[in-house]
Amino acid sequence: MSQLYPFRRTALLFTTGLALVLASCAEPQDENLKPSFSIPLVYDSVGYRFHSESLKPLIDQLAVLNQEVEKGNQGGVYVSEESLNAAFTQGTFSLQSVTTPYYQSRLLAQNNGYFAELSKASGSYFNPFSRNWEGGVYNALLFDEYGLETGQLIEKGLYGAALYNYAISLTEGKFTPATADQMLFLYGADPMFYNSDNTTLYSNADRRMAAYAAQRDNGSGTGLYSQTRQEFIKLKAALKEGEDYNAYRDEALAAIKLNWEKINAATVIYDLHEAVLRLNSGDLNDAQRAEVMHLVSEAAGFLHGWRTIDARHRKITDGQIDQVLELLNVPYDRSAAVYRFVTNAGEELPKLMKAVGKIQGIYGFTNEEVESFRRNYVADQGR
């Protein structure tokens, strides 16, 4: 026995040492084992301009498409379906290439796609009380025969179906600090995070979804814009630290995705509140009626663009989207009836408040948050 003891003692030490080495290489099992991490006060903008440069053609193409759409708002001006298709599909890195297949089909479908419907309505005139066959311009806005402003379904729908959809696809490949910069660019914020879409004050003011985040943020440092800013700072810093900080990376990414979606939903609530405010004001003139149909159409666009995005990357379900679209008289699978909000306001108006309630329930917004979403704080605070 005395001759075997040194061997056994050595084996025991080796086994114990191996276990310690394996334990030290293991991923942290709980929050207490995460490496310490000091989140910077500002976003690390080194490389941002370079990393975002490759995405600028995509944004430029969206601008070209929107310019083509807006031509239809001029009475007597015809917009061809071919010009809209070209603005969406042209180039090797096109809007079409980053848009969900579902929304591509809604835009490009012959006869009843959004491009086809906008083209058919252009060049004519529209009145919600005496609707013509194809729709037309009403108070400088182009509506289809059902009072739906298809231009809003195109522009605002692509905020989700193209820009958000592409942003999350970037996280499923090689996830690097460059990825954070590209996501930030698609979101629409500058690394300085101005919390303002006022281009008079800031040459790099917030754009795209970041612009709407600024409008919904009261400037106290706790709103959706401020929360998202903090998570982008955390995301970039964690990615620079490397794999040991993946837990922080994943936390930040999850918060960014949820906040991006909440900002979208909060803006839908803003639009619906504005529509209700006008409908409750009494007798409407043509400008107010057109604005109501515009607001409902914009809300439908913001919402509809999220339909069929990978369920791993959103909170709202397709079924919930369909329920709200139904309340907006813009069902995904049938013709719209947006005009009824101005021709039958007493009957239709309650649907808008019910839609607000559904969105509030989906995202768990408090009554105070829903009330705050009535405001455009950038305009109200002059910032």
Rank of each mutant, 00 (worst) to 15 (best):
N127A: 09
T100R: 08
T228K: 00
W260R: 11
F143M: 10
L84N: 06
S297Y: 05
E274I: 02
T89V: 06
I359W: 00
A167C: 06
N73C: 02
R9K: 11
E348A: 05
Q227C: 10
S169L: 06
I309S: 00
A311C: 00
W306M: 11
I39S: 12
Y225D: 00
A287K: 14
Q67C: 00
R131N: 04
V324A: 00
A63I: 15
A265C: 08
I359K: 01
L13T: 10
T199P: 00
A87Y: 02
T222H: 07
V77D: 03
S297A: 01
Y332E: 01
A167E: 09
Q96A: 13
N376T: 07
T100N: 07
V137E: 02
A379M: 09
T150G: 02
L349Y: 11
L235P: 14
M183C: 13
S169G: 10
Q3C: 14
F37I: 09
R9M: 00
P191H: 06
T317V: 07
G123P: 03
K358Q: 01
L62F: 08
Q3H: 13
A86E: 07
A178Y: 08
L33V: 03
K34L: 09
M1A: 13
A252D: 01
W306Q: 10
H304K: 09
A178K: 10
V46C: 03
R312V: 09
T222R: 13
A210S: 14
Y159L: 08
A87K: 14
K156T: 01
L108Y: 03
K315W: 01
N367I: 12
R374T: 14
T228V: 12
